[in-house]
Design a protein around this nucleic acid. Structure first.
Length: 277
DNA sequence: CCCCAGTCCTGCGGGC
DNA sequence: TGCCCGCAGGACTGGG
């Protein structure tokens, strides 16, 4: 998402609009009039990412922050449906995506669990400072991860989803990461070997970077799309996620599904054997 | 500290 | 076919 709208750097915000969606309104802060007063006329200084959020930094120091959660999309063209459009940022002077000049960025959200916020640097820090958000998954070292979970009895899969520990790992990717690392998802953090921490962190970068190259996973309903509303391709590379009972691509043993912290985990009991170290 | 259930929403697919 | 239920790539809260 971030790369998809990187071409708006340098553009001026000419308007912001809450879309009159029949559904219950998503969270927009501050209220739209104050939002508009502070944002309109500013230039986009940078497009960044904070964990799972997309951040449009403005030259006023404020930032427009999209938090898509389960079903939110940041789009520059052709939304999947009109009725789930939630928010629009109008722009002047943005670059082009695939030949056509970008005039706005939409926020679309089917379930509406996501949010759009205009935040000061102080607010961003309070929300997503080091107390609430760990090092980014693409930056963290095995040593850092091991240290922050030292003595923890939690299952490794559950810990990877804790954004205070490491920022950016989602449920689907946690299963894929542990499969590639050949670590059982229920293994307690205090029982991982050093070699396993190394494998987990290496697998983490590898899986996430691959997923980014393929522009994410578009599964049936969750239906992630890139900024042009095109589906991603990483679902075709999933080894375990959403493949219960299918043969493991490495060893042909059937993929298992369990529930941890109320969320599905998929794994191969052979490749990721509990006894494996 | 950590687990769990519940909450915010909408919509799809499976089972009956 | 229609209905009900479980489930969904997330994050937060309150209680134990």
């Amino acid at each position: 998402m971030r790369r998809g709208i990187a071409c708006i750097v340098g553009a001026t915000v000419t308007g912001v609009q809450r879309e009159p969606c029949e559904r219950k309104a998503i969270l927009v802060r501050p209220r739209i009039d104050a939002f508009r007063r502070r944002a309109v006329g500013c230039r986009v200084a940078a497009v960044e990412r904070i964990g799972k959020r997309v951040v449009m930094r403005l030259d006023s120091q404020d930032a427009i922050v999209f938090e898509p959660r389960m079903t939110g999309l940041v789009l520059v063209a052709d939304p999947p449906s009109i009725e789930h459009l939630r928010f629009r940022v109008d722009l002047d002077g943005a670059g082009a995506v695939r030949g056509s000049t970008v005039r706005w960025v939409w926020y679309w959200d089917r379930r509406g669990l996501g949010s759009v916020r205009l935040m000061s640097p102080k607010e961003i820090d309070e929300h997503w400072g080091p107390d609430t958000l760990g090092p980014d998954a693409l930056d963290i070292t095995a040593e850092q991860l091991r240290e922050s979970l030292r003595g923890s009895k939690r299952a490794i899969k559950v810990a990877l989803l804790d954004q205070r520990v490491v920022a950016g790992v989602g449920n689907l990717y946690a299963s894929e990461i542990l499969h590639l690392a050949e670590v059982h998802p229920e293994r307690r953090c205090d029982q991982l070997t050093r070699a396993q921490w190394d494998r987990v962190v290496r697998a983490q970068s590898k899986v996430l970077e691959e997923a980014i190259v393929h522009e994410g996973s578009t599964l049936g309903d969750g239906a992630y799309r890139n900024v042009l509303n095109d589906p991603g391709g990483y679902q075709n590379h999933h080894k375990v996620y959403d493949r219960e009972a299918e043969p493991c691509p490495n060893c042909s043993s059937p993929i298992k599904r369990i529930v941890q912290a109320q969320r599905s985990t998929f794994f191969c009991a052979r490749c990721q054997a509990k006894s494996k170290r």
